[in-house]
Write a protein that binds this DNA or RNA. Structure first.
Lengths: 188, 188
DNA sequence: TACAGAGTTTACCGAACGGTACAGAAAGAG
DNA sequence: CTCTTTCTGTACCGTTCGGTAAACTCTGTA
């Protein structure tokens, strides 16, 4: 394991932030270079596939993070209620209480969705089904678990949109708290 | 009123569709030219301010449409319940049951939000307050009206994101129906 | 029919785009 | 020290970007 100045893995979170801030089309190679501190040579060394590979790597990392920190606990934890609570907390942290945009959601609305359709679809499908699984195991009726999980993912994404549109993070906080309460009631 | 081959007003809906499909950055002047059937000369004749003016005109038209078709009825209709029902129907039509993206929501997630922050903010703020007004007049408690209107706008935007991400319009239909039921219950 | 102004075509501009080529700097291995 | 591999800076490529300029063609009016 060669310890080098910059590892590819270290660059990906920086790339994620650039794409979040500028969108896919808006994140030009020169902007990416500035915000990562890497020249074109390094960028194309790590990502020979160019911008597409950079974005794909970011989506993969995001997917991995959610899988590990959120989906897996929801599906496998002994205490599904704790896992649901954990999800709420993790979501609040991850999206910085509404100050940070969901890159996958932004990609979904953009025309680049087609290029990364599989990753975008998987991210949301996994989230919905993992949450449904937790609700199910927590004693919720299967139909309710299914609809509630979908509504929860919808509320989180919608809250991110509205929060940013109104430039008001309290919108996200309120919505997440209301979602938390709704889930708690359903499995009481 | 000179009847000419193409009126500026006729171009705006076409522009809206281009921006919806490609996003602001993705909608290059040449793409806009193709999809509107207008050359650069005509486009810059109608919109001397370039792409920015085109997008601003689109946002203005969208804002005007929602004001006329949705916000005003919500605020002023004699029968607020009918206005709320009307809103649900209009939203379903406008977003083509989830097959069409909300341009304002997409702009909110994009970095171009800053450029059109005022229009984006107004669109959502008006929606939320108009719906709260209707709920209020329909007999809902002021606090509930306030939170329910916010949750409704969130649910619509979130459903558009998830619907498109999963490429499944039924997500939007389900969510909108659930929203309709929730609003009906609150003012029963 | 002649004029005026609205609308359009076309050629063109400098800047920025994504991407490539390649020489050279770092850094671990023998 | 030297070799090899990994990483990086820089110059450059063709293309496309948003935007401008000006000559042209319509079309309604008188």
């Amino acid at each position: 394991m060669a310890k080098t100045i910059a590892e590819r893995a270290d660059v990906i979170p920086l790339l994620a932030e650039v794409f979040r801030e500028h969108g896919f089309e808006g994140a030009s190679i020169s902007v990416i270079g500035e915000q990562t501190g890497l020249g074109k040579g390094s960028l194309y060394h790590f990502f020979p596939g160019g911008k597409d590979e950079m974005a794909a790597a970011v989506l993969t990392e995001i997917g991995g993070w959610f899988e590990e920190e959120i989906y897996k606990p929801l599906r496998e934890a002994d205490d599904p209620r704790a896992a649901i609570d954990g999800m709420i907390g993790a979501v609040d942290d991850y999206f910085r209480s509404g100050r940070r945009v969901c890159l996958v959601g932004a990609f979904a609305l953009d025309n680049v969705r087609d290029r990364f359709a599989a990753a975008v679809k998987a991210y949301f499908a996994e989230w919905r089904s993992a949450l449904a699984s937790a609700l199910d195991r927590a004693g919720s009726a299967p139909d309710l678990a299914r609809s509630l999980s979908e509504e929860t993912v919808i509320a989180i994404q919608g809250a991110l949109v509205l929060s940013r549109a109104l430039d008001d993070p309290t919108v996200f906080s309120r919505s997440l708290e209301s979602t938390r309460a709704k889930l708690a009631t359903a499995i009481a």
